[in-house]
Design a protein around this nucleic acid. Structure first.
Lengths: 236, 236
DNA sequence: ACAAGTGGGGTTGTATACACATACCCTACA
DNA sequence: TGTAGGGTATGTGTATACAACCCCACTTGT
């Protein structure tokens, strides 16, 4: 294929996967978008087969729904769905954090520090989300719970599309919450880390739910935003 | 393809998936088995494409590992992995049970009763496992947590291969545990259901861990499952 | 004898072509 | 006007063919 693959993508299907995933998470492919295999294949300069594989993988992550003979569609997130995802994260992330603290290495602390420094600049590049995720990843990594981590990755991927709703206004609060988590991790205070992560999640969910509600009601009253409407093709 | 598809399998990939899944869960394809796409395709009378899709789906469920240019292998379960899976289930299943109780319908109770009756026969057909899973499914179904249920399905699929280790000797205990769960569900006593499910899981994990340890140290002397040491091809 | 290099066989990844299922539109009719 | 029916068009599912890659055994050189 073409040579524009990220280092660890040894397969066209993987490049298609991460490309489509990014486009979904950034909102470039909003919920309801139909993913036409042939047109995506043309866009990406490959055949339909790896595109199909990528779509199946996205379906496994819950980012698209892909019923048998129908064309895949980017999933939307209902208020109930958002609640469930945060319920799930609240059940697992504090636990993973607590377990990780005892095994944290200096390099993990360093990485968290770096990510925090970036977040404190409150520059809202597209990279912000990735940095933020890396902060949490460097913590959970040491929990020695690979399956739990994978589940959390998937859950976070589904909520990530809406994170900017909070990021917009609460950047300072978010940075403060992570500062508390890092401080507790430095002290190896697992109970505090667990509590801080739980608080962080609760705050995020509260803000998101609030913003989503007001965004929805605004949509209904005024001009319709792209979210609510019908199903649209993914034409570039 | 051929007409021997289960009712809701509209696709060759789906039949391949459920066929392979069954063969893995029953131990017909023990851990370490290599899944050669071409030979499986011949066996199933289809091309490699749907087999590939099925293998990818199995990988998403954690039943096989499938690194890029390598042939997929049926995954094994380390003691740590078993512990993690039960930790996960303990974090989610009692919660799902508790939430479900309020929404249980008479038909759910009936279905649980039927499954229990079958299990009390302590006839150890291959269908036993499926019936047992249906008991739990009819309970969790009403929790209104589709993502949680999917995660639990996957987690249970990975432990299911070893359930017979407990089933062999504790069939009566297992039936008793389910009888308690059903009784509590009949009373709509959500706290009791939660506690019984938790106890059920704890008992299962304890027995499994014990049996796995002694089986490993003694020999691979299972009557149904031979947990293969090396990597073997899937050729029948 | 042992390490690194190298070629061949086998297996997966991808492209192309075709079969089949679904959706849409247009027509005919109550 | 609304609705049922059919036919076409679009898009997915699958088969076959080919290319890229990995593994392994053999060779070769020190």
């Amino acid at each position: 294929m073409l040579g524009l693959r990220s280092a660890d993508e040894t397969t066209a299907a993987e490049t298609a996967f991460s490309l489509l995933r990014d486009r979904i998470l950034t909102g470039d492919l909003p919920p309801g978008t139909k993913l036409n295999q042939a047109s995506l294949a043309r866009q990406l300069g490959m055949s339909r087969i790896p595109v199909r594989d990528a779509i199946r993988a996205l379906a496994a992550e819950g980012l698209v729904s892909h019923d048998p003979h129908r064309t895949a569609v980017v999933t939307d997130l209902s208020p109930d769905g958002l609640a469930e995802l945060y319920e799930l994260r609240l059940a697992l992330e504090p636990r993973a954090s607590e377990l990780a603290v005892a095994h944290l290495q200096p390099e993990d602390i360093d990485e968290m520090q770096e990510c925090l420094a970036y977040m404190e600049d409150d520059s809202l590049d597209p990279a912000w989300l990735e940095i933020h995720d890396r902060f949490h990843a460097s913590l959970y990594r040491r929990s020695r719970r690979p399956r739990m981590i994978e589940i959390l990755e998937r859950a976070r991927a589904q909520t990530r599309r809406y994170t900017w709703l909070r990021l917009d206004r609460d950047a300072n609060d978010i940075a403060a919450e992570h500062r508390l988590i890092l401080a507790a991790a430095r002290r190896r205070d697992s109970a505090a880390v667990q509590a801080m992560v739980e608080a962080h999640l609760t705050a995020s969910y509260g803000a998101l739910r609030e913003r989503l509600r007001s965004a929805d009601s605004r949509d209904r009253g005024g001009k319709r935003l792209q979210r609510g409407g019908g199903v649209q093709p993914a034409t570039a």
